[in-house]
Design a protein around this nucleic acid. Structure first.
Lengths: 238, 238
DNA sequence: TTCTCTGTGTGCGAGTTCGCACGGAACAAT
DNA sequence: ATTGTTCCGTGCGAACTCGCACACAGAGAA
């Protein structure tokens, strides 16, 4: 019974996996399973972060925005490989970003204060800080992609990142949502999706995109996909 | 004598300032003053980082690139408010980014191994980790600017960030250099600079840009400047 | 069934940046 | 003074995205 529990809880989130048993027990004692419905706002800019979330499914996204909110863009994508609230691990209790659930799923959460306590454990601290690095590499390459890639390629990259985190070929998202994440027009997403479809890389139906050809998408993303993923694998792979 | 030394060394770099005396002494024992000539490559993608640098003048920039190097963009700007090699503080000895000296200056450096030891000190660790957070906020807003701003505004933002770090109204850079950082054509930079000049915000001569009107530049940058700076001030201001 | 809302497909003019290419101007070295 | 190099100004067609606007379709509610 105990073993099953443990297997289940540690398989879900890859950051929490590979934690030695003696540390895992107190750690999981502070974790609370939660549902992560699409649209849930996890962090608001400037507001104190009460909980950090370790998804086991679905996708969370960190959105950078101007203070007035009239410009916004996705700066980080988080799934079962990571956690929300990485800035808590870095020693602050808030950030200027907004964090929301992009694709509904499940996960565990922990009070930010508990996490701060648990960070005294070197094993956990090392692991979470390395994740912070991996996340910032991801953000840097998003900046690169935003500056240098055409919409098709950015879309391909985004779908790949989502695909990694979902572990499933079906991404339940509307063009509208994608346009906000990529910071472009909704119509532009429609057209770019047609291009991907035309090459047989994906298949889009109402509110759902099915990934058909990962390798093709990677080619389309032209070198801007892969670096953050490799960095994560190097530092945190199971 | 001792006092002067200490004053000089702690004033130069803002991250190293405000360190309690008992910690500062061992810390500074491991620091070595260095010259930072323009063009110096501080970190190469994938190569082990031997030293971290704490500038006291000049500007260092972190460049994200594709593995083949055919697309690159500045993902982070570092001056006397920060340090290079933040990933060492996060527990890894390399990164996929390239780090070079943008504008020549001076600074101190420390062996990465020494920094890892010194990070056991909570005061220093806290401070450096907070800086990592501030830097990642900067990167996120670079991603935002790259996606949503026109070239004029991005240029304005970049000049502001440089101005902050130089503490001097003269930025010694060529259009060519700027074009690489911003990931655009050199000719585009020329045109955008004319726009800024036309509004009396800057004055450009051969290889040198003089900042005339900060407030005007901030207006031009349209809300994408300021958030990372405020976050730094909140967490690390002297 | 019918209505209504959300999601998707499409078209068109305008603005921005690109890629390329060339002329001129300032500076350094000889 | 001349030469070579770097840096800056400019022009033009192509490509991409924008902003707006409208039509259609699937899904759920009445």
């Amino acid at each position: 019974m105990k073993v099953e529990e443990k297997g289940a809880r540690s398989e879900g989130n890859q950051l929490l996996a590979r934690i030695p048993a003696d540390l895992a027990d107190p750690l999981f004692a502070h974790l609370e399973p939660v549902d992560l419905p699409q649209g849930l706002v996890i962090e608001q800019p400037g507001e104190v972060i009460e909980h950090v979330y370790f998804p086991t499914g679905g996708v969370i996204s960190v959105v950078a925005m101007t203070p007035d909110g009239d410009a916004q863009i996705e700066a980080g994508l988080i799934g079962r490989e990571g956690m929300s609230g990485s800035m808590v691990a870095l020693g602050t209790d808030r950030s200027p970003h907004q964090t929301t659930v992009q694709i509904g799923g499940t996960g565990h959460r922990m009070a930010a204060a508990r996490l701060r306590e648990m960070m005294r454990e070197e094993v956990l601290r090392k692991r979470l800080l390395r994740y912070c690095h991996a996340l910032s590499v991801q953000t840097a390459h998003t900046a690169l992609a935003n500056a240098k890639l055409k919409l098709d390629a950015r879309l391909a990259r985004w779908l790949l990142m989502c695909h990694d985190r979902l572990g499933c070929d079906e991404v339940p998202l509307t063009h509208d949502f994608l346009s906000i994440m990529l910071g472009v027009r909704r119509a532009g997403v429609t057209v770019s999706l047609h291009i991907l479809e035309g090459q047989g890389l994906v298949r889009a139906t109402r509110g759902l995109i099915r990934i058909n050809d990962r390798a093709g998408l990677e080619r389309m993303a032209g070198g801007c996909y892969g670096v953050p993923e490799a960095e994560y694998a190097r530092l945190l792979a199971a």
